[in-house]
Write a protein that binds this DNA or RNA. Structure first.
Lengths: 339, 339
DNA sequence: TTTCGGCATGTTCACGGTCACACACGCCGG
DNA sequence: CCGGCGTGTGTGACCGTGAACATGCCGAAA
């Protein structure tokens, strides 16, 4: 009977050591690129590693270093294009830096599910947190649970610049609003996102700022929930009065719903009513008419997000903050108002 | 100097034990719901746990049990509604069962990125794998990397029933096709998804089966890439000849692109050409006209997926396989052909 | 009464890495 | 000629948890 190389159990650093004729510590040094290893020793160890298909045990490493190398994402409405794109980009960037990503999706954004999601991530020992959710409540909860990890939210409030990316949502919203005003609109509604989403708030603020800067009288924004269904129903409601010529929707889905309602009412876009969206989802170019909107680079957002987090974790990581300014994409849903 | 309760380091099971006046193993038993613990001892331990805000160390537990309680998701095009919904549902179901979810999104689906993604997940010690990607290639790669974990793919090929959910894509596609035929269409194109996606293949097969069952002559399906852009360009191409009265698109986005191309050509839907999609994304009801499509319950899919995986991992988990049959949703894009 | 089995709990060890320290060797400067 | 230092390597402890085994006690069966 020969001494089988530990059948049934994955090879450990000590198995590698034995076969390479070195100590387990030497193997560890090879794995961690320790400088003082003789090249031939290193090669021998690497050969054995390849040979045995040795894979380091993450749990063991995490235990002793007390570093999980995991980033958590708390996300609401992750089925939407924007969040989903950012998540994908975050995951990719994290992976490139040797981090893992674990997600907790919350369906409703009540305090309870937020707490559940955060607790779940915390139990995993995440080293950093990305929040794509109603952020106001999340931060409160974070404090309550005394979870203490670096975190980043995808949008800037202005009040917490260290933990947020300066995607200039306000500028984007102002651009959208200005576009409508420049077309000659004076009665413009804003269909905003949920109140406790910071990006919704920022876009709303941009809208209001531009309106007042241009001396156009404003009505109170309508608070929506990001869905096309909501846009549709809000549109039906608004059309019973029809005291406007344009609507700025806080995302493309709600814009789509609005368009549906407007057509249902027998009106034409943009002849009767102009619509502008926000995000530039890939489908927006194929709506009828193709949607004028504001393009956001969600992927870039995700990437910077990780860079920001890793800046806290690994001082080596490149720090490239800076403002991403969304870009107006004029298509077919905006035009001069009819009189 | 008093003996401070280990400032700086998170409390461990032993800290709890010391304060509760028991051994660390007793604490461990409380945590793992071991039956023979005196209720009062248990309570005392639980009190101390709550008091110290003790959180079990996942890495240590994973190390000793050699169970990571992590499910990996390999996903391509996770920004699309379908995959994103399933991912969210998988995550939620896994969380409910005490599992974590780690994702690897791959942008391109070449062998290299698939291998990278899988290696990344494998390095994490995942216990199960969900594949939402071009599955044919993934399974080959899985074997090549000699990664041996239970896996589930979101769609059934028929040939691998243990590792797939029986969402009856074929039946769904047949229903869609039959709907068109019943409306009187005899020249029907199929705009399929990418060839190596099993769901694309299944829908294509359903289309072909129904066409031949009803004795309608068939042309070769066009292989697309799921995007609205592709649908648009394919539509323009097809309209140069215009030897058809209906198109069955393998997903709603491509259907949207087709609709755009058709309208660009000055034609009307469904008067001139009928369109049917697949998935029923939330926006589909608000397209113009609202899209007739086949509804898939992505969330249910995700949930069953986890149940299936956990069936392999935890014999206790409820096993509810069974076929989910997609459902036809008739809206405004299909009608009788004009002659 | 004695033995035995089960309950409640404690003791020790193992998991697979990393870290602190020790050690052997060769080289260089005082 | 010897001590110190840098290089390459080995030894043992330790991270936090759970499993195996041990222990003491109590009640039921022999």
């Amino acid at each position: 009977m020969t001494v089988e190389p530990q059948r049934g159990r994955a090879p450990s650093i000590r198995d590698v050591a034995r076969l390479a004729g070195v100590s387990h510590q030497t193997v560890s040094r090879v794995l961690n690129h320790h400088p003082s290893i003789r090249p031939e020793t290193k090669q021998r160890v690497l050969d054995v590693i390849a040979d045995m298909q040795y894979k380091p045990n993450r749990a063991a490493r995490a235990l002793v270093t007390s570093r999980s190398r995991t980033i958590g994402i708390l996300s609401a409405s992750s089925t939407q294009y924007g969040p989903a794109s950012s998540i994908a980009a975050i995951e990719e960037a994290a992976r490139a830096s040797g981090y893992w990503v674990s997600t907790a999706n919350i369906e409703s954004s009540d305090a309870r599910s937020i707490a559940d999601g955060l607790a779940h991530l915390a139990a995993q020992g995440i080293e950093g947190l990305v929040v794509i959710a109603p952020q106001v409540r999340v931060f409160d909860t974070l404090a309550q649970l005394s979870i203490d990890v670096p975190y980043v939210s995808l949008q800037s409030t202005g009040r917490d610049p260290d933990h947020a990316l300066s995607v200039d949502q306000i500028a984007g919203a102002r651009t959208a609003t200005r576009h409508l005003i420049e077309q000659g609109h004076r009665s413009i509604y804003h269909l905003a996102g949920p109140q406790d989403w910071i990006e919704a708030e920022a876009r709303m603020r941009g809208f209001l700022e531009e309106m007042s800067a241009q001396d156009v009288p404003t009505t109170a924004p309508i608070l929506g929930d990001w869905t096309a269904d909501f846009g549709y129903h809000a549109g039906r409601e608004l059309l019973t009065v029809r005291d406007f010529t344009a609507i700025f929707a806080s995302n493309d889905q709600m814009a789509l719903g609005l368009m549906h309602a407007i057509r249902d009412a027998g009106l034409e876009i943009p002849r009767d009513i102009s619509i502008i969206g926000f995000d530039d989802i890939p489908e927006a170019a194929h709506f009828w008419p193709p949607l004028t909107t504001v393009r956001q680079d969600f992927a870039e957002l995700g990437r910077r997000c990780v860079a920001l987090l890793l800046g806290d974790l690994d001082p080596a990581a490149p720090d490239y903050r800076g403002t991403i300014t969304p870009e107006l994409v004029v298509r077919g849903t905006t035009g001069a108002p009819a009189f």
